[in-house]
Write a protein that binds this DNA or RNA. Structure first.
Lengths: 137, 137
DNA sequence: CTACAAAATTAGAATAATTTTAATCTATGG
DNA sequence: CCATAGATTAAAATTATTCTAATTTTGTAG
């Protein structure tokens, strides 16, 4: 099975009909950039699918989110990013180069007692500062 | 000293000249709503200061952030909120009523080894789900 | 096949939050 | 007073996202 076929099946198994647009968008998420914005995905793909519309990217992202194929992350204000990694984890964004790194976080280890009062549905952790690469410059 | 005088001095001590706009905005943050949006602050204040401009609210917020008087929180996409509480803590937003609650979080207790690689400047934690009030309905 | 319905995609307009611009106002120090 | 820097303002511009309505594609029953 090719990589495309694998991802195509993966979409099907999550209740998403794998149109060419959806498949390519998911491929970008899985194979290229890690946490792209809608615009980045669009610009990347429009070369290949010239009739692609930004609305399709947004539609697809919301569909993916609903089917639990991606998580929407809000590190910067005014720009959503999409993350295919559904395992609980956090993010670190470098204030200089803007790169976003995944950070392993074990939510259970945190045991925040106060949260017992709530019915938890989502957890988001992110950090900002300077990454190694930018520190060494 | 009146409450206004205390807050006025507080601004001065943080390097912010306490104009009436800035003082009233900070008063709202401290005394009224907990995590207001720029628009909420504007609508609250424009009754009292009819010439107030939304740009002033944004300018003031960015000044406050720079002077470490507020933190900007990005729980929802497409709408920043302002938090005067500078102690490290997290947030919980109810998916039904939208209320944002403060959550005590001890960052040190988390010891995320991976973060050693970075020079940390900000930490953000937020959760979503259902609050007690909405659960009991 | 073919026709039809449903689903998906699209372009472009609309909306919402924020930033920018340029003008006006205010406070302060000489 | 006056000059100057800083603060505020209204309005226009920008950016990200959503909406709308039309068009295209897909799947299916005849």
């Amino acid at each position: 099975m090719t990589n495309s076929e694998i991802l195509s099946n993966y979409l099907k198994n999550h209740g998403v009909k794998p149109s060419i647009q959806r498949l390519k968008i998911y491929e970008i998420l899985r194979n290229n950039v890690t946490h792209p914005t809608a615009d980045e995905i669009f610009n990347h793909l429009v070369k290949e699918i010239p009739t692609l519309s930004l609305a399709t990217v947004y539609n697809t992202m919301h569909l993916f989110e609903q089917k639990e194929l991606v998580r929407i992350i809000n590190i910067e204000n005014h720009q959503a990013r999409f993350d295919w990694n559904m395992k609980p984890h956090g993010h670190f964004q470098c204030n200089v180069c803007g790169t976003i790194y995944d950070i392993e976080i074990d939510t259970n280890q945190m045991n925040i007692n106060e949260l017992d009062e709530y019915q938890l549905e989502e957890s988001h952790f992110y950090f900002k500062g300077l990454c190694k690469t930018c520190l060494n410059k």
